[in-house]
Design a protein around this nucleic acid. Sequence first.
DNA 1: CTCACTTGCTGAAGGGAATCAGCAACCACG
DNA 2: CGTGGTTGCTGATTCCCTTCAGCAAGTGAG
Lengths: 345, 345
Amino acid sequence: MKSKSVRRVTLGDVAARAGVSPTTASYILNGRAGEMRIAGETERRVREAAEELQYRPNRLARNLRTSTTKTYGVISDFVASGHFAGEMLSGAATVARASGHLLVIGETEGDVEVEARLVDEMLDRHVDGILYATLVTMEISVPEVLRKHPTVLMNCVDTTGQLPAVIPDEVGGGRVAGELLLESGRAAGAYVVGADPTPGALAGGRRLTGVEAALNEAGHALAGMIPCEWSVREAFAAMDGWLRDGGRPGALVCMNDRIAMGVSQALAEHGLQVPGDVAIVSFDGSELASWLRPTLTSVAVPYAGIGARAVELLLAGAAGREVEEMPMDVVAGGSLGGGGSTGKR
Amino acid sequence: MKSKSVRRVTLGDVAARAGVSPTTASYILNGRAGEMRIAGETERRVREAAEELQYRPNRLARNLRTSTTKTYGVISDFVASGHFAGEMLSGAATVARASGHLLVIGETEGDVEVEARLVDEMLDRHVDGILYATLVTMEISVPEVLRKHPTVLMNCVDTTGQLPAVIPDEVGGGRVAGELLLESGRAAGAYVVGADPTPGALAGGRRLTGVEAALNEAGHALAGMIPCEWSVREAFAAMDGWLRDGGRPGALVCMNDRIAMGVSQALAEHGLQVPGDVAIVSFDGSELASWLRPTLTSVAVPYAGIGARAVELLLAGAAGREVEEMPMDVVAGGSLGGGGSTGKR
DNA sequence: CTCACTTGCTGAAGGGAATCAGCAACCACG
DNA sequence: CGTGGTTGCTGATTCCCTTCAGCAAGTGAG
C-alpha cells in the first residue's frame, strides 16, 4: 500500500531536461522569470519540461527552505458540536483553498493543556497562521504564544483586545429581531426567553441590547424576561412553568433556535398557536428553524462568513486589534405571521 | 505580528551545549539511545541541554528528511453538514492526536475537480495517510491515486472493494430497532417511514433488512412502507398524506431522526399520541432525538467511533480490503413507551 | 602482547528547493 | 580599443534534521 517510491521528479530533473540550471528552473516556475530577465524561449522550454515530467515541487523541501507551509491551523474548543463549528470551518476552508492553503484542525475540548499542546504541534509544523475559534461567542484569553504569530479569532474576542477578531454583530442582530417584531405588528407584550448560560458569553447581552434599542426607538418596551439556559429542555421547562403561572405572552424573542423549539413545545401543550396567539422570533438561523411548524423566523449567525472573513484577514496579514462584526441576516419563517410561512431554507 | 525570528534553537545548539555531536543528540532525543549504546550520563546531559534551551525539533527539516509528516488528510464531501461530519472528525482527531498526528481537512462539496485538487495538495504535503469520508453511508469510487497511498474510507465503501473501510453496522442497527419494537410489545402494525434518497446510499436498504430480519424471526412482519425523502418536511408531508388517507399505524420505524420529527408533527396534527397511539423508533441518535417530546428512542450511528477506528487502521498500516462494521447502539428515549422517557442524552 | 569484541560516540552525506552573489557574453559609446 | 552597462544565466550555500558507516578507546581471552 505504501507508494512504491519511484523517486519523484525533482526540480533538478526538470532543469536537466530543459538544459538549464536548477536555479533558472526555480526562478521560472516561481514566476520570477521576468524579475530575473530569463529569455522567453528558455522559460517556454522549462515550463514544457515541467509539464512533460509532470513535475510537482516537493513541498517539504520548500517548507524547510522558506519556513512557510501554506497551511493554517484552526484551534477550536469544539469541532463536533452542532453545525456551527462545521460551517465556520467550511467557510474558512473555502477561502483558504482559493489561495492554496489547507487547514489543520485541533479540538481542545475546552482543556487548556490540550490547547497548549495543539498550539505547540501546529507551531512546530510552522503553520502560517492560526484561527482560534469558540463555539459560543465570548471573551477569552488566548495562549500567550499566539501573540507572536499571525492569529485571528473567530467568534470570540480576547480580553486584552490585542488580536484581530471576527464576530457576529449581535447588537445589530438584536435590532433586526426587534424590527421584525415591529414590522409584523407583534411588538406589544413581547418577552425575551433565555439568559446567558456561559460566563464570558457575549451573545445574550448584546442581542438583548439590540432588541431593546429597536423597540424603544419605536416607543415600545419589552414586557419582561423569561430566563433559562439555552437548550430545548430548559426552555420547555421554563416556558411551561411560566405559562402554568398564568403568563400569556403576545410575542417571544428566543435567544436561539433551540430555545424556540422548547418554547414551541410548551405553547403547543398549553393550546397556544404560533403565530396566531404568540409570535416568535429567534436567533441562529439553524436548520432547526426550518424544521419546526411553523418554520421559525430566525436571525442567523453568519458562521461561514465569519470563517471566510477570518481567513481573509490572515491572508491580508492581519494587522492586529481590529474587531470585525459580521451582519446577521434574517432567515424568514412563519413564526411571526404575515408573509413567508415557508421559510427561506 | 510576524514572529521576530530570534533563530530557533536547533539540534546543533543542544549538542554543542551538551558537548556531543548532533548525531548523538539526535539519537538520544529520538529515543534510540539504547539501540546506539549511549551512556546514561551522556543521555542525561543532552536531555538537560534540550530542556534548558527549550529545544523543539524543526518538524519541517524532519519532514523533508523522512518524507513523513505526522499528519493525516481528511477528504470529505461535506464538513459543514449536521453534527455528523463534525463527530467523525472529532473522533478521528482524538485518536490522531494521541499518536502525535494532526488532521488536515478538505471539503470537496461533492465536486470531483475540487476533490482531485485537494488530494493533490495533500499528497504534495506528504500526509501520512488519507481518510476519505462521505456524509451519507454509500458506495463510491475514489480517485485512483489514493490506491497508491494509505487510505481508509469512513462511512463508505469503494466499488472495487480494494480499500479498507469503516462503516456502521446498519443491518445490525436495523435488528436492534426491530428488537426494541418487539421488546416493547409494539411490533404489530409497524410501518417503515423513509426510502433511500441518494443513489448508491446503503443505509436505508440495510436498516430495512435488519428490521425485517428481527421481526420475521419473532414471527412478525412489517405492515408496510411509507416512502419519503429523509427530511423533516418530506416526512411530514408523506405522513400527513398517509394519515389523511385513513392510515393508522401501530408503530413507526423512521429511517432517521429528521423523519421522526416530521412524522411526530403529522401525528400531533392528527391528534395521535406518541407513544400511546403510535410507538416510534428511529435511527441516527442525533441531538434532535433528545429534543423531541417525547424523546426519541433512536439507534445511533457511531460517527465518532468510525472516525476513531479509521485512524487506528491508518496507524496500524491499513492492510487493505477489510471492511469494518461498527455496532450501532441505542439512545433510549420515550417514543416506544415503557421505561426511560427521559432519554439518555 | 596481540587479537577480537564491545562500548560510546562522530563525520559526512543526503533530502529538494530557494536565493545571494557573481560571471560570461554582448553591445554601445567615446 | 578600453570602459560601462545590460542580458541571461549559474555555482554554491543554506534550511535542519536523520542515519549510514565507521572509528578510537577499552576489555578480556589466549
